[in-house]
């Protein structure tokens, strides 16, 4: 079972849901994996005081010039769609941070003067406690292409575990990388027109990818049904409501998860999980 957690808008409580869901599943017979794929700002580890057991660097190939072989013909410059190579005054300049590692330049160089060489783009850290595993990806500073690091985190997915994937906000490329191939996506939103606007964008994206989804309303207020009406209209289940309460925000700001600050939430998250299992089975 692979469950992704997403939200159109930032700051809606995605990590709050992901961490509490993971903690509520600890007594389940199956092991639990939490994948923190918000590689630009990974913060799930703040909530689990676990020692990192190991870390692996993530590399991507970028071209390296053998100046003895280079004929300065300009073929690589012509081929590169990302302006990652420039030919100036008989020097070939490579720009690693705009390179997409497509391999075009080294496949097509007529003199084999360009060869792939690894470049570090991030790291994947693993922490373990009993049957629970936390996998966190971190993008190296100065790098801004996050999908390869997200993919490296997702490569740690264990098919026998319950896998929970927490990703970045938005509905762009990195988010597609985290929801891709998951069995279900939990969308976390808040009951404002801005929250709804971004929820709609996220739902549209999931429809294109054919991934089933349900909604968690965070900072819920009883008098407001803006998200309810949309979900009813689209036939989307509302999986959980977390009320607007300052105690919740305050404890969370201190790095304490919802189920730890108030254990009566644990059965609710367990119920949320069982609901997702039923939705997937359908």
């Amino acid at each position: 079972m692979r469950i992704s957690i997403a939200s159109g808008k930032g700051g809606t409580g995605k990590t709050l849901v992901a961490t509490s869901l993971a903690l509520s599943l600890m007594d389940q017979p199956r092991p639990v994996q939490l994948l923190d794929c918000d590689v630009e700002e990974p913060n799930a580890h703040i909530f689990f005081k676990m020692k990192q057991a190991g870390s692996q660097k993530v590399f991507l190939p970028i071209p390296k010039v053998d100046y003895d072989q280079c004929q300065y013909c300009g073929k690589c410059v012509e081929v590169c769609q990302f302006n990652a190579i420039a030919l100036m005054k008989r020097t070939l300049v490579i720009f690693p941070d705009v390179c997409h590692s497509c391999g075009g330049c080294w496949y097509l160089c007529p003199t084999e003067a360009l060869q792939p060489t690894p470049r570090e783009v991030g790291a994947v850290g693993i922490s373990q406690s009993g049957s629970f595993t936390l996998v966190s990806g971190t993008l190296k500073l100065g790098t801004h292409i996050s999908p390869p690091v997200i993919k490296a985190v997702r490569a740690k997915e264990d098919p026998d575990s319950i896998v929970i994937i927490d990703g970045p906000p938005g509905s762009s490329c990195p988010v597609m990388t985290i929801v891709d191939g998951t069995d279900y996506c939990i969308l976390v939103t808040e009951p404002t027109p801005f929250g709804l606007n971004d929820l709609v964008l996220a739902v549209e994206m999931l429809q294109v990818l054919g991934i089933a989804c349900g909604v968690v309303i965070n900072r819920d207020v009883p008098e407001n049904d803006i998200i309810d009406r949309y979900c009813e209209d689209k036939g989307l289940p509302i999986l959980l409501r977390i009320p607007l309460k300052t105690e919740i925000a305050r404890a969370y700001a201190k790095g304490i998860t919802l189920v730890e600050s108030d254990p009566h939430w644990k059965p609710k998250f367990l119920e949320l999980y069982q609901r997702v299992v039923r939705e997937v089975a359908q």
Binding site: V79, H100, S101, C102, G103, G104, Y107, M176, V208, L209
Partner: peptide, 27 residues
Amino acid sequence: ELCQFKAIQKGQINSYACEGCAVCYHV
């Protein structure tokens, strides 16, 4: 075989995965 983004499968292009690198076009 050469697409690094796995955007081509069974002769079909997945435009969401395609990054527009044009390697396929050149080869």
